[in-house]
Design a protein around this nucleic acid. Structure first.
Length: 679
RNA sequence: GCGCCCGUAGCUCAGCUGGAUAGAGCAUCGCACUUCUAAUGCGACGGUCGCAGGUUCGAAUCCUGCCGGGCGUACCA
């Protein structure tokens, strides 16, 4: 049960005699700041006291008098300036624990209002290799889908695949000029990837080479500007040093300002220099390789040619369409391999190509509504509050992702009619979504709650975007492999394996490494607040200690180890089933602080899920699981299960072990992370 | 230029619909294994919550300005 929600409801009633609008005050329920204050606290009376013109403690006394929480709590206490402290009764906790033992979702009740929620996540461009940036959308989206489903919402997941863009022009160009039909037929996935990489490298080369001269010009300008600024700063500093006392303060300020400006100009120079370096690196990469250099010389204008191939495909050119039809399944195989490994699936995979036919209709609809304006030959929608328009058709007649997004929204409304749509997409696209959402109303779709669930960038260990030396992004699969092999090293080291009885065979070892390695990557991603950038540090992720998946998984393994021992020593086949059959409610009683603390953590499972859902923030569920695992470790250290002759102690502890295992298993499952029976 | 986001312990990060002495993990230093996995637990050390104002009984949290960093900014997605 969700204790916070219970208290909110109770306070709502108790506060109704004091104010017409008790909800905001009833909402001021928090987990207690310090255990000595109890388990929960209400902060309502201080601000309410102000509003009704009474002393906060006086208000608190009235509230406590009208508050009916006796079923759950000890007598509430008023403390400090007017806090109301609530301590959950031990009997309530043991009853809840008992209830959870009999409940298939560990006590989590279905949501009051069932909604139909469509979640759009992952959405990679096929044909391009997946990289670390794709993890976040995929993993966060899948976790959100699981969370909403767990509490009974109807969830529709849709992978809005980028399967219609320039990347196919790239592959088509590559295939036509460098491809080999036999190789593509016999071993399509690596061959297509190779063609993509080669053509893309040529594009980068051409662009880099072309940009060098303008960059040099920019560098010259920047340097001149920096020099001017620096001189101005020097002059300002001199003025400041000579200034009379009456003017020294203002002069010092001027000097500081000038010096800042000079520094900024210097940074701009550095930025241009690094751009030049990166362009040079791309050029060198090609020119250092005679074969590549020769190819580059023969193909002087790949970028434009690729766009032509793409345009031909869009226009229905028979050859390019046929190639697209031929390549697409292989590209899907490629990303499906990654999805299989991550354990992610979708109800629908309606990519951009699916909406291709509908795009002219979108423009037409907007035209009819009188929303469009022609500007520089492009069809635009100018929106209030935005400087730049939303362009829905390019000068050359091609459509853009804004057009596709609108078509997709129309389709989703017609076919799925969801209450809410979540777009799990990079923060950098937030402006696009603001515009896009602003257009929903004129299109008559303001009854759908559209949410951009945005997330930050994944950075390397050094705090910079993760790239290889040549500047390309590191492939997702190699990161997964890396994590799994590191997990194998730490989780299956020989010393550790020697203690395993029965011995751990290679199969089990590999499975553990996979579960721990993949779990580590997912957990690292999910445990950070989604809106912030985070650093991708494999060593830390698979570490055995700290806030990692491994620690939580290990706690689970220990619960199962105990259950196996209990089964063996007491000759019980199925310990949880035995416990359910042979335990009465009054046999669960806490005698150690660690028992009670663990029970309280377990009872908070629903609260943790609700909170994570409300903020679209899986990190809150991670935090909860880590806290619960810690409470379990403390309990495990302090409270032995085996060898207790007192049936109450034995059953209470067994119940805690069983439920800890179940909460961790189900909690991790919601996050898309697996568990191992032993580690 | 304009817009959005961020700045919390040596490091990586929580906390941000205002509430009691600002939390966790890592690192460092102690203590605890004849007992269900010590891949653990217990404790210590460590912070002008970027800076300056303001609102408030109360601010890491809200508002303003400044400093520092990232991202976006009309035909890529």
């Amino acid at each position: 049960m969700n204790l916070s929600a219970y208290f909110r409801a109770r306070f709502q009633t108790a506060l109704s005699s004091l104010t017409d609008d008790p909800a905001p005050y009833a909402g001021m329920i928090r987990v207690a700041a310090d255990p000595k204050f109890g388990d929960y606290q209400s902060n309502a009376c201080m601000s309410l006291g102000k509003k009704v013109g009474k002393a906060p403690r006086e208000v608190a006394a009235i509230v406590v008098d009208q508050l009916d929480v006796a079923a759950v709590c000890e007598q509430p206490e008023i403390a400090g300036p007017g806090f109301i402290n609530l301590r959950v009764r031990d009997e309530f906790l043991s009853q809840s624990l008992f209830g959870m033992l009999h409940h298939e979702r560990a006590g989590v009740e279905p949501a009051d209002h069932r909604e139909k929620i469509l979640i759009d996540y992952s959405s990679p461009n096929v044909a391009k290799p997946m990289h670390v940036g794709h993890i976040r959308s995929t993993v966060i989206g899948a976790a959100l889908a699981n969370m909403f489903r767990y509490v009974g919402h109807e969830v529709i997941t849709d992978n809005h695949l980028g399967d219609w863009g320039t990347q196919f022009g790239i592959i088509i160009y590559g295939y036509k000029h460098f491809g080999d039909a036999d190789t593509v037929a016999s071993d399509p996935v690596p061959e297509l990837a190779k063609l993509y990489r080669l053509t893309n490298e040529l594009i980068e080369y051409t662009k880099a080479k072309a940009s060098l001269s303008t960059l040099q010009g920019k560098l010259g300008e920047a340097e001149t500007f920096a020099k001017t600024e620096s001189q101005a700063a020097g002059a300002a500093a001199e003025t400041a040093s000579k200034a009379a006392e009456s003017e020294s303060k203002a002069a010092a300020k001027e000097s500081k300002k000038a010096s800042k400006a000079a520094q900024a100009a210097q940074r701009r120079v550095a930025a241009v220099q690094s751009e030049i370096e990166s362009a040079k690196a791309k050029v060198d990469a090609v020119e250092a390789d005679p074969k590549l250099a020769a190819i580059a010389a023969e193909h002087p204008d790949v970028p434009a040619a690729v766009l032509r191939e793409t345009a031909k495909m869009h226009e229905g050119d028979a050859e390019n369409r046929a190639l697209w039809e031929k390549f697409l399944p292989h590209c899907k195989d490629e990303i499906n391999r990654v999805y299989d490994r991550l354990g992610v699936s979708f109800d629908h995979t309606l990519g951009e190509s699916f909406y291709h036919d509908r795009l002219p209709g979108v423009v037409e609809t907007l035209d009819k509504l009188g929303l469009t304006t022609e500007s520089d030959g492009a069809v635009c929608v100018f929106l209030e509050g935005f400087e730049s328009p939303m362009i829905i058709q390019k000068r050359d007649g091609a459509y853009l992702y804004a057009t596709t997004d609108l078509a997709t929204l129309q389709y989703r409304q017609e076919v799925f009619a969801p209450h809410r749509i979540l777009y799990v997409v990079d923060s950098r696209q937030s402006e696009h979504f603001e515009k896009f959402f602003a257009m929903a109303e004129p299109l008559g779709m303001n009854d759908i709650d559209l949410v951009h669930v945005q997330f930050g960038t994944v950075l390397g260990k050094d705090g910079r975007p993760m790239k290889t030396r040549s500047g390309s992004l590191i492939g997702l699969e190699s990161l997964l492999n890396d994590a799994v092999s590191r997990a194998q090293q730490v989780a299956c080291n020989p010393e550790r394996l020697a203690t395993m009885d029965p011995p751990m065979l290679a199969d089990e070892q590999n499975q553990i490494a996979e579960t721990v390695g993949i779990g580590a990557i997912k957990y690292a991603d999910l445990s950070h607040h989604r809106t912030t950038d985070y650093r991708f540090d494999v060593e830390k992720m698979v570490a055995l200690e700290g806030n990692t998946a491994t620690y939580v998984q290990y706690s689970y393994a220990r619960t199962q180890s105990i259950l196996r021992r209990v089964a063996a020593e007491m000759s019980i086949d199925d310990v949880p089933a035995w416990l359910v059959e042979n335990t009465t409610e009054d046999q669960l009683q806490f005698r150690e602080p660690a028992e009670r603390a663990l029970a309280l953590a377990l009872v908070r499972f629903e609260e943790a899920i609700d909170a994570a859902i409300a903020a679209y923030a899986p990190n809150q569920l991670c935090d909860y699981l880590f806290e619960t695992a810690k409470a379990y470790s403390t309990f495990n250290d302090a409270c032995r299960v085996l060898g207790n002759t007192d049936p109450v102690v034995l059953r209470t502890r067994l119940a805690l072990v069983v439920m800890t295992g179940r909460v961790i298993e189900q909690g991790l499952q919601i996050l898309g992370i697996g568990v191992c029976e032993r580690m």
